[in-house]
Simulated assay, not measured.
Amino acid sequence: MAQIAFWSNAHGQPGNTSNAAVIAALTGLEYDIRTLVTQTQFERSTLETLFTKSNELQLGGLRDISDIGLDALARLARANKLMPESVKNKSITLERNRLDLLVGTMKPYEGLYESLSEHVKPIFDIANNYYQSVIVDLHSGSKNPLTTALLNESDLVVVSLCQNRTLLDRFFSKEDWPAALYNKPVVLLIGQYDPYSKYTASNIQRLYKRSWDFKQPIYTIPYCSDFKDAMNDKDLMGWLRKNKNLSKKHPNHFFFQELRKAAKAILEEIGVNTQVKYIERGVS
């Protein structure tokens, strides 16, 4: 149905991978739609590791991935054997009928990674025919050809920002924008957000209002020590399941409140009726 690209103008600080992972995970837990999450980074992606605890991958901790993921699908594409069910069959179920993980490339060097690019479009065409949302964690910046191709193919770009003034200036000056951002719907999302910083979401809007037409708020995923620990423990899904129904008095309530706002806004941008598709909490 729709491809959602998570992209940032800088690596690391904006938390693009964790933003993509937690939005996908919450969507899989709380909305009755089929979602796929994947990444196309050649190096330094931690997306898969966030889901390895408690048998989430059902693969003994990613010890045998030779017949799943993007690489397996690329082999099918080269042999003209991609089928409507191929992406589903080569993915890992995280939440039955609602969230699958497609493992990224394990190519050992950049030349092989670049050869994957020619097969990505048919793979994602099939994915978009089966899944209602396809969330892709892209390499940061504007110089990666695979990032450029997938930004062009995506229906929505979620731009991961941070509260670093230098990186904000770079983004809002548009000096490092990929061309696709000029003609795509965009959602701005601040990861690892500190609400006590001078650079709050509302202040950032005011600071850059002349360079951006703000028709919607900047969304945030607040910094949360327990969320950080869950990522380090490689148990993102388990932590969300245990904590998503916290009371308003709990210190992590603000984190989930803002996360839900962001997930809802992203889904509505791609045409999902969130009122109809929302699953009542506590009901599977």
Rank of each mutant, 00 (worst) to 15 (best):
T38M: 09
A201P: 08
L207K: 15
K248N: 14
H139G: 11
V187T: 15
L101D: 07
P185L: 09
R78G: 00
S247F: 07
A179H: 10
T46V: 14
W177T: 11
L57R: 10
T274G: 04
G15I: 11
V87A: 05
Q132W: 05
G271C: 13
P108Y: 07
D64T: 06
E95C: 11
F172Q: 11
A24N: 10
V159T: 14
Y130H: 11
P185W: 09
S8V: 12
T40A: 14
S54H: 08
K234P: 00
H250A: 15
A20D: 09
A20F: 08
H253E: 02
L62S: 14
T40D: 03
P14Y: 10
F254P: 02
P84Q: 08
E153F: 07
S142G: 01
P145N: 06
K228H: 15
V283Y: 08
Y130S: 00
L26V: 03
A265L: 08
T148Y: 09
I23F: 02
E258L: 05
P145V: 03
F254G: 10
G141M: 01
I123E: 07
D155Y: 06
L161M: 07
T35G: 02
E85Y: 04
K184H: 12
S160Y: 02
S197G: 02
N80F: 13
S211T: 13
N144M: 08
E268R: 12
S140V: 02
F172T: 14
D235F: 05
H139Y: 08
S247R: 10
F255S: 12
T148P: 00
D176V: 15
L267V: 11
K261A: 13
S247Q: 10
A127L: 10
V276Y: 11
N55M: 14
Y31K: 06
N152G: 07
V272M: 07
T148M: 08
L240I: 13
K215Q: 15
I68C: 03
A72Q: 04
V159W: 12
K242E: 13
V103R: 00
D169K: 15
Y130M: 00
Q58Y: 08
L138T: 01
L57G: 05
S140T: 04
I279C: 05
I92C: 02
E175C: 03
F6D: 00
T166M: 14
K90H: 14
H11K: 14
L50K: 07
I279Y: 06
N245C: 06
I33R: 05
S140G: 04
Y223T: 06
E56M: 07
L138H: 01
F227A: 09
P222L: 04
I33D: 03
I23G: 01
V136S: 01
A20E: 09
